[in-house]
Design a protein around this nucleic acid. Structure first.
Length: 446
RNA sequence: GCGGUAUUGGUGAAGUGGUUAACACGCCGGAUUGUGGCUCCGGUAUGCAUGGGUUCGAUCCCCAUAUCCCGCCCCA
């Protein structure tokens, strides 16, 4: 048997319906924020990611899907969204667009050559946002607010926002020096991984899992103490705007991001979900004022977040959040014998073209089997064709909820359905959901 | 890249070194309900991940590979 590549999965069935729903919510939300959808290639010249992320990092050396195409070009499957979009921004000279800043969102698959484990596949889907051409702290806050609002819209209650700032380049460099100076005498007391990090990426020592409770880490220098006035002011502004946007947050001075191009605001958004373990970080991002420059464009400020939708779906599952997926047919058309099958085809087509969601029996099952099938599809109406009635120009429609049967003249089928659907009754489930979301009903427990 | 666990039919799963590998669900058909959702009966053909090995014989023992899940590294 041919099986799917390691670290990938097939999306189908009810799971696919959930994704479609979530994608719809995302599109809807981004429309309200007035962000434009952008789709860039799934593969890019390798240098887009290599230069953007850093040639020597683990990410590039062992976690990208690299290949040489038939024209001997080095290509890389995109491991993240930002670099490709920045390349597109530069190539399409979006910095000259009349509407500024440029506010973009994407939603697509990314590829990382990693050892798969929970919440971590080789092909993953990410939704994210990039705002280019604006350095105002307000944008930082808005970008943070988007994933928060998405999670809340979908029904996740416990959403935690951690923010920190690395300051501008000067502040960041000062801080890095301070860390090196501080950790040097303690080096032998740190875990082996941290000793490695000391050389490669000292900021990362701060969120080491092994040493996190040690005195050495607790007393380590804090970013905030190394900010210059301007950076400090900027961070205060971000916090002010977050409050205005009603986003609750915590400052986590140990929150750092690995890559060199990050500066100023960095953040992570986690869902407090029981049983989620260390994978509870659903979204993360930060400001990258140096990246456009680095990839050959004009110096341009930028900020982004990325969110793994796979983890998001896991969180929704663990929290047992039922998405309002409408999963029913308006009608299922069945036939008592083969003699009515052709008419069933015609009728199915007719109703579909008139806007109804309709399916029919394909398998020539027994009537009993057809009823079962109709129930599996959760069909609101059953149309049961039999020869005798057809000859009299009537068809039988059964309301599958009330079990009421009606004989309808062939020319009046649409009237029947119009009447049925126009009064727009709530189903019990819809009603329950409506009450849940109604603020007035907050105090009506039970 | 390193380490650990697992791998039985459409699904959930029992099981043993030796002729026909339980059971349940699902599905299909039939009986009975005026046309189903209950009950009863019957059926359910590339089944023990793949490749080697040990053995008279392996789904069950050993090795390798693949995949899955769980840690580590890393996390854009």
């Amino acid at each position: 048997m041919i099986v799917k590549p390691k670290g990938t999965y097939d999306l189908y069935g009810s799971e696919a319906k959930k994704w479609q729903y979530v994608n719809g919510v995302i599109d809807d939300l981004m429309s309200k924020y007035n962000y434009d959808y952008i789709r860039t290639p799934i593969f890019e010249a390798s240098e887009v990611f290599h230069r953007g992320v850093g040639e020597t990092t683990d990410i590039v050396t062992k976690e990208t899907y690299d290949f040489v195409d038939r024209g001997n070009r080095n290509m890389t499957l995109r491991p993240e969204g930002t670099a490709g979009i920045v390349r597109s921004y530069i190539e399409n000279k979006m910095y000259g667009d009349p509407t500024q800043p440029v506010k973009l969102y994407y939603n697509g698959t990314m590829y990382r050559y990693e050892r798969p484990q929970s919440g971590r596949d080789r092909e993953l889907t990410q939704f994210g946002v990039e705002v280019l051409g604006c350095d105002d702290a307000l944008i930082d806050a808005e970008v943070i607010s988007i994933p928060v609002n998405l999670l809340k819209t979908l029904g996740l209650k416990e959403v935690k926002v951690n923010i920190n700032t690395l300051g501008d380049r000067e502040s960041r460099d000062n801080y890095r020096q301070a860390l090196l100076k501080y950790f040097k005498p303690h080096l032998k007391d740190l875990c082996p991984d941290c000793q490695e990090r000391f050389n490669k990426n000292p900021l990362r020592i701060l969120d080491c899992k092994v040493d996190k409770d040690s005195e050495i880490l607790k007393n380590a220098p804090v970013t905030l103490d190394y900010l210059n006035e301007e950076s400090k002011k900027r961070f205060d502004d971000v916090k002010k705007y977050l409050t205005l946007l009603e986003v609750e947050y915590e400052v986590d001075t140990k929150l750092v991001r690995g890559l060199d191009y990050y500066n100023h605001t960095v953040f992570e958004i986690e869902a407090q979900v029981a049983g989620f373990g260390s994978n509870n970080v659903l979204a993360g991002g930060g400001r990258y004022n140096g990246l456009v420059d680095l990839l050959g464009g004009p110096p341009t400020p930028g900020i982004s977040f990325g969110m793994g939708l796979g983890r998001l779906m896991m969180a929704l599952d663990l929290e047992k959040i039922e998405l309002p997926i409408s999963d029913s047919l308006d009608a299922y058309i069945m036939y008592v014998s083969q003699n009515e099958k052709e008419y069933a085809v015609t009728l199915t087509q007719y109703l579909r073209m008139n806007g109804y969601k309709v399916d029919m029996e394909y398998m020539n099952r027994s009537l009993k089997g057809q009823f079962k099938q109709a129930d599996r599809y959760n069909s609101k109406h059953l149309i049961i064709l039999n020869e005798e009635e057809l000859q009299n120009d009537v068809i039988k429609i059964k309301d599958n909820k009330t079990k009421e049967e009606t004989l309808v003249g062939i020319d009046y089928i649409l009237y029947y359905f119009e009447e049925k659907t126009s009064s727009e009754e709530f189903t019990d489930e819809e009603l329950a959901r409506y009450l849940e979301n109604d603020e007035n009903s907050e105090n009506m427990e039970d």
